[in-house]
């Protein structure tokens, strides 16, 4: 544990020093995680290291130049000096399925091959039910990667677990190993109308297009991150369930608000799924307390998600 925190701090300091950020704002870290700048005239709101929001002159803030824009970027290594985390606020989820919708559209997948599903959960008979978005947990100790015989699925330094579907032999051991059951297999020829064929199945694009006889899963949208955007599900959620960010910067954002990751997890008692298994996921959940919406007591059914349309329109 100690080693890890040291590491992240070193990496954080290293980067910060390089960019001269600390010197400029005097102990204030810019909130702009992935270009989520809130430019309001001459001042800009930033988050201090101790978690306070303050307004400073916009001239005093410099954009973080992430080193992934440099040429040493490697698909299997990831964005240097970064460690992505996701926080899912279960209190806010109302099963709007916008995340599923946009995920399908952007990744050209469709039900039942969804990379992102919203589960109806009920932990025990006395507790109340809640909706839980479920997708790849991008574990730090991924069971799927350990068992892959050909290095088709791999974990990058930025914490993203990806699949090279030009390498995958389709043995499905990773699917057997994954305790979260988030992996999808292309049993037949994938139906993907309107898919761009140009970026051809590089792991960077998380197996896009899908390849018959290989495994797919949530890729944490590295293609969006590379463009300085949030993963599609984060951006699409109407209630701001998803927070995405960089562990080294200790900030996560849901597109509307940007918060300090460590404080959020501490204050809201964030947890990870099946912590006891030692997989060390990068996805944190906030317990479904004080929920935004009352849980509709309608039964969960497959029909609900089945009608999320097969994307036919071309990508933008």
């Amino acid at each position: 544990m100690e080693d890890k925190s040291k590491n992240s701090r070193r990496s954080f300091l290293d980067k910060s020093l390089k960019l001269g950020l600390l010197g400029v704002v005097g102990g204030v870290v810019a909130t702009k995680l992935v270009d989520a700048t809130a430019q309001e005239g001459d001042t800009v709101r930033v988050l201090t290291q101790d978690g306070k929001v303050m307004e400073v002159d916009s001239n005093a803030v410099k954009d973080i130049q992430h080193s992934h824009e440099s040429e040493d970027y490697n698909v299997r290594e990831g964005f240097p000096g970064r460690k992505f985390v996701m926080v899912v606020d279960l209190a806010k989820c109302k099963n709007a399925l916008k995340c599923v919708d946009v995920c399908h559209k952007e990744h050209h997948v469709h039900t039942p091959n969804a990379w992102l599903k919203v589960f109806k959960m009920k932990d025990n008979e006395n507790s109340s039910p809640y909706w839980m978005p479920m997708f790849c947990q991008h574990c730090d100790k991924p069971a799927c990667v350990t068992v892959c015989p050909v290095d088709a699925t791999f974990k990058r330094r930025d914490g993203i677990v990806l699949i090279d579907n030009e390498r995958c032999i389709g043995c499905r051991f990773c699917m057997a190993a994954c305790p979260y059951n988030v992996r999808i297999f292309n049993w037949g020829e994938p139906v993907q109308p309107g898919i761009e064929k140009d970026h051809h199945g590089t792991p960077e694009f998380g197996g896009k297009p899908s390849v018959i006889g290989t495994v797919d899963k949530c890729d944490f949208c590295p293609h969006a991150i590379a463009k300085g955007e949030l993963p599609h599900c984060v951006a699409a959620c109407p209630t701001g369930v998803y927070y995405f960010g960089d562990l080294y910067e200790d900030t996560v954002t849901n597109g509307e608000e940007t918060v300090k990751f460590s404080k959020l997890i501490k204050d809201r008692a964030g947890y990870r799924l099946y912590e006891t298994m030692g997989t060390s996921p990068s996805v944190y959940y906030l317990p479904p307390v004080d929920r935004l919406v009352e849980f509709e007591d309608s039964d969960y059914s497959y029909e609900q998600v089945k009608h999320v349309p097969i994307p036919t329109e071309e990508k933008e």
């Binding site: 050909v150 390498r167 389709g170």
Partner: peptide
């Protein structure tokens, strides 16, 4: 027989 991509056996 169980492999999704038997054409990729050499990758092993």
């Amino acid at each position: 027989l169980d492999m999704g991509r038997p054409d990729r056996i050499p990758y092993l």
